[in-house]
Design a protein around this nucleic acid. Structure first.
Lengths: 226, 226
DNA sequence: TAGATTGTTAATCGATTAACAATC
DNA sequence: TAGATTGTTAATCGATTAACAATC
């Protein structure tokens, strides 16, 4: 594969392209243009071509992209064919909802086990995944090759738990704890799902909208007053 | 308040600043410099000052920022003092975990009611919020001023449900459906929590790491061979 | 072939960082 | 006052878009 420095923005668009491609495929389409993909994401056609150009040449001049082919390329680029092994740590509400509802397999990730400190949860199964005693984590990690840890413990336990799993070899964390579990330049990969940040961003834009509207109304009123 | 065009990147950093400020406050600190805030987020001190400059002047030369003061400024900027009203639509696993675990109040959002189509859920309460019949949504929205809808229905119901709530006046959606529920340039605000995209980005970076390591090893081997 | 659409480079646009005067 | 750190502008860096030759 060619090697260019790929920007984070590009990486974040890849899953969105893939989602659009899946949708198109489901509707029976077989080809797609960069213009159509761009429109779906709200960016320029050249953005799409530029993004894909990082990884190879997947299209055909005068035709566009074969949907099935492009899907498989993007899946591969995203590592979905690598069957990564994962564990889930923290089987509270969020953890359980991930276990029960999130289709890890579909994303090329195999969920091997779950862990919790709660006696009542240990021994239970969710969607075929057994909950083990969290105190067994170090031993477990020493024995198996686990690529990714889903971290869904309560905020208070986040740092300690992260410490334990990193010490025992985990290099990638899917972090649901609303806490920063590593320093900014750590070599451990952390993908944060910070729901707080997300809701606050929505709140910001809502407030911005309100203010913009209000100032428009004020302009109208002062005009009428004149 | 001053008015500049604020970039999305800046908006996304505000909650992170706030989180760091809360942490510092909890540890008893009263002042902070842009250097310290920047270090926490992995960006330059001037980035922090530049971001804040969009909204006013909150610091003191030679001193830094008063933590309590800056917290309250950022909270206000994020709209956390506006007591937005919200409903939650779709009380499956994700919906329930939000109802039970996510502290909406803490973010200045009041969760007024939840909705579902499932007979068994209707009438139940989660964390003090009652589940109402989804068929009552239009009537409910007609009677009350609801600012934000949390959309946590199954993927298959996402588009239809979005249609219903938008038609009935909802202008902001916190979207957990892993689906795009509006066109890219819609006037309806949508904040997406696309877990799929997030995991795939993690998977991408993990794969990139593996490949980088492998190619380093190959270079080593070929050097030894020479 | 003519029309369409890619791949790829150059131009533009915007975001981050550096620099430094202002000032606490 | 001297030292520190901000506010703010200018410089740099990177990402997006435009343009167009290549070619299916």
């Amino acid at each position: 594969m060619r090697y260019k420095r790929v920007s984070n923005n590009t990486v974040r668009r890849l899953p969105k392209y893939l989602r659009k491609l899946n949708e198109l495929a489901q509707n029976g389409a077989t080809r797609v243009s960069s213009a159509e993909l761009g429109a779906a994401l709200g960016c320029a056609p050249s953005q799409v071509r530029h993004d894909l150009d990082n990884f190879g040449t997947f299209g055909m001049q005068g035709y566009g992209y074969d949907i099935a082919e492009l899907r498989s390329h993007i899946s591969r680029i995203l590592g979905m064919d690598r069957s990564y092994n994962a564990i889930l740590v923290g089987c509270g509400n969020i953890g359980q909802s991930l276990l029960c509802n999130f289709n890890f397999e579909e994303h090329g990730v195999k969920l091997e086990a779950a862990f919790d400190v709660n006696r009542k949860l240990i021994g239970q199964q969710f969607n075929g995944v057994s909950v083990l005693d969290a105190s067994c984590l170090p031993g477990y990690l020493a024995q198996r090759k686990i690529d990714i840890a889903v971290l869904s413990v309560p905020k208070e336990a986040a740092l300690d738990t992260a410490q334990v799993i990193i010490t025992n070899g985990i290099r990638a964390i899917w972090n649901f704890t609303n806490t920063e579990v590593v320093e900014p330049n750590s070599t451990v990969l952390v993908e944060n799902v910070h729901l707080s940040d997300s809701l606050l961003a929505l709140s910001y834009y809502f407030a911005e909208n309100e203010d913009a509207q209000r100032s428009r109304q004020n302009r109208m009123r002062s005009r009428q007053a004149t």
